[in-house]
Simulated scan of single mutants.
Amino acid sequence: MDGKYKGLKGYSSLYFEKIAILGVGLMGASFAKAVRKLGITAKICGYGRNETTLAWAKENTIIDCYDTTLSGLAKGADLIILATPVGTFEKLAVEISPFLKQGAIVTDVGSVKGSLVYTLEGLMPKGVHFVGAHPIAGKDQSGMKASSDILYKGALCIVTPTDNTDLTALETVKALWSAIGCSVKTLTPEKHDEIFSSISHLPHIAAYAMINVIAEISDTFFEYAGKGFKDTTRIAGSSPDIWSDICLLNKENITSHIGIYIEKLNAILTHIKNSSKDGLIKEFDNARALRKKMNDCLHSNIEDCIDNV
């Protein structure tokens, strides 16, 4: 890529003259702060719906410049990050593709891959490469004011190449997330969506549902909520726009997994109705043992965990 390399130990070729970020919210702004701290780019530019918000980001040195047009944002960009809700990716890719320069890399921070990766690959002009990425990081708060230059530090980042992925672009994206502080692993887009439907998407849906259940029983009960309830439902504070897109784009996996969840709830419901303490103990003991196994797994090799999913 063009420009004089400023230097980053261990990543001698990792430098971008211009990084363009579509969506300067929690994920996009945290990415901007992380790459600025590394010193691997000359310019970080942002794009979003709210010019006032973008101006604030520039004033607070999250970004160096912003543009309210995709043509202006894309001009001269070596790396383009899609950090808007995943439901907007395809439309943005269509609109930005005529302005992308040869050799540019387009990647993302979205938590749905599957067919979306193949769609985005197909929308890239010749000489421009898409590489899907999903850093497993976030907060229950949204927006750039909640962003942090260490949001991704120590996180797992899943990269989802296909048979058509350019190998140089792939290695660049992997090196980028490694430099930011992530542990980088590779999955097919299909396997990614199957896994994260169960361990991420379903829990978010359950948390949203739990809050709505309590409200339906009596919203006055919330004032009695303790740490356990707050911990269990923390992720219900996540962005509805982001999570509605995720549900619709990964609907086949999610509907299947919700069905299994309902079956497990019904099994517990049956044991309670039948006053079956043995049945309840069996269900709870099994869950506790699996929770311990998961905890042990998180402290070992993630690939071993994936092989057993």
Rank of each mutant, 00 (worst) to 15 (best):
S148E: 10
K251Y: 14
K33T: 10
L82R: 01
E171H: 11
G259R: 11
F130R: 12
F221Q: 13
E252H: 02
V35T: 07
C157V: 09
N274D: 12
E171T: 04
T160N: 01
K58P: 03
G103I: 11
N274A: 12
I214W: 05
R49N: 06
G226E: 10
N308E: 01
L73H: 10
V128N: 08
S256E: 14
A287T: 10
G226Y: 11
R49L: 04
V173L: 00
S71K: 15
L269E: 12
S183I: 07
P240Q: 15
L280N: 06
D241Q: 14
D241C: 06
G3S: 13
D307I: 01
D219V: 07
R234S: 08
K33H: 05
T41S: 13
Y118V: 05
S147E: 05
A20P: 15
I81W: 02
A146R: 06
G39D: 05
D163V: 11
V109P: 10
A289T: 03
N212D: 12
I62Q: 03
I80Y: 01
D296T: 10
V184C: 12
G259Y: 08
N250S: 09
D296V: 00
L298G: 15
G122Y: 03
V159G: 05
A104Y: 09
W56L: 06
S30C: 10
S276E: 05
P98H: 05
I242Q: 02
A42N: 10
K113M: 10
D166V: 11
G114V: 09
T232H: 00
S147I: 05
D278L: 04
L170V: 02
L298N: 14
S300E: 11
S275I: 01
D64W: 06
L176I: 07
S256I: 04
I195F: 02
A289G: 04
I81A: 13
A57S: 00
E17D: 15
Y152F: 14
A20G: 14
K139N: 07
T186E: 15
A179L: 04
A55V: 01
K230I: 12
G143E: 14
Y152A: 02
D285W: 00
